[in-house]
Design a protein around this nucleic acid. Structure first.
Lengths: 236, 236
DNA sequence: CGGCATCCGGGAAGATACTG
DNA sequence: CAGTATCTTCCCGGATGCCG
């Protein structure tokens, strides 16, 4: 029983529990599908828009497999809405530390290009992992990233985003996820991004800049190796 | 540059750093190859014997890709030995938290069969993740698992195995990794396993049993869901 | 339009046999 | 022992079309 029937793919038949976890999460796209749902349920299309390059049939297949694995559920919202949504189960939410570990490892790898497409949810999760708490003051931040909005708090214990609708807070960022990523990940100061009008910011600019500077990835922007070189040689 | 040339496989072209990490680790077998090397360098055959089911050509391919990614190195030992070994780089060792997160997630999943093949290294890593420190007394443990031997310490800060040759300690376990796993993961008491002669144990039996009981997976033996049901309903 | 099935081409994984 | 070569199988990704 469990997930024997319609076993979708080759499994590692190992007693190792890490290998057993990969039997559930090892398929291509599987972990990224979970990632898209970690901050709240979504419809098929919204999941897909966060996963550039995935085919509709592959997404259908992954969703079905993850459902039979017990990691997600497929629900039909009551009549006024009458739309189908996909949500993580309690078990599904337990993969968050796996995503977190991947983020922290990925931050050390060369070749990362922050200009590539990033989904709002992926950005929020990345920021959560890269946040370095500093100081005891708590700040509330609202992100309006098009189809998804988040309200977050940043304090000494971390950065915690929650998906909501039309949030407002001390600091307010609006724009496309990719442009926000360029501000968070890249060396671009906050004031310039406001001047560029790519993302719009409302709130205390000084606090906003201090907040943006709390994300460690900022300091090793484009390439882990470049970062090492830069800190050693101070060359252009 | 970086790893552009001979890009071995489809990459997720995303700005998400977790997806970027999966560009390095997402291939089938890749994470398990890293796992086999986490506790020390190995030869091709020893890696392969820890990965039941992998083909020689696939292992060759993965090793080559992981080397160009900068996660492992391929060395030739000096003349008296003159054998080739594969070792993790510093960067490669950073994937350990990813394996750890997978272990802790896998421990919550249903369908785990501790009777399936497990490699000595995988067992040591699983035990490291599943260990629940209890009490302040430090114990040293030696494991003789055939081709691989480990010396470990268990104290309030965790369980830490190191690969060595012919170790001896307060507690000494000898036998096949799978049989040790049955004792650690399963409900079988230590005394019986000694009586069975499947694994042999030397040392204080009481301390040995207390040590074995420190691994949390033991209590949810065969099936995560069964475990949940049992704690809620106490029904058959 | 959102969700899902079917068909097809390319390529990765798996099994086997062979070589230095 | 440490791979390489070849063949087969099947997964992935793209396109198309059905259905609510």
């Amino acid at each position: 029983m469990t997930k024997a029937s319609s076993s979708p793919r080759k499994q590692y038949n190992e007693g190792c529990i890490a290998a057993h976890a990969l039997d559930f999460l090892g398929d291509r796209w599987a972990l990224l599908v979970i990632r898209e749902l970690l901050l709240g349920p979504k419809r098929f299309s919204l999941i897909r828009s966060g996963l550039p390059g995935i085919s509709a049939n592959i997404l259908t297949q992954r969703l079905k497999e993850l459902e039979t694995s017990g990691l997600i559920v497929h629900q039909l919202l009551p009549p006024p809405a009458s739309v189908q949504i996909y949500a993580l189960t309690i078990l599904g939410h337990q993969v968050r530390p796996v995503i977190g570990a991947l983020c922290r490892f990925g931050a050390q790898l060369p070749g990362h290009d922050p200009l590539l497409h990033i989904s709002p949810t992926a950005l929020m999760l990345s920021m959560t992992e890269m946040f370095v708490p500093c100081g005891a003051k708590e700040v509330s931040i609202a992100f309006n990233l098009g189809a998804e909005q988040f309200l977050a708090t940043a304090n000494a214990s971390g950065f915690a985003p929650v998906r909501t609708h039309a949030p407002t807070a001390q600091l307010n960022f609006s724009g496309k996820a990719n442009d926000l990523a360029a501000t968070i990940y890249g060396p671009r100061p906050l004031s310039r991004s406001v001047a560029d009008g790519i993302i719009t910011f409302h709130g205390d600019l000084e606090i906003g800049q201090a907040f943006v500077d709390l994300f460690s990835l900022k300091h090793r922007a484009l390439d882990g190796l470049d970062y090492l070189e830069a800190t050693v040689s101070h060359a252009p």
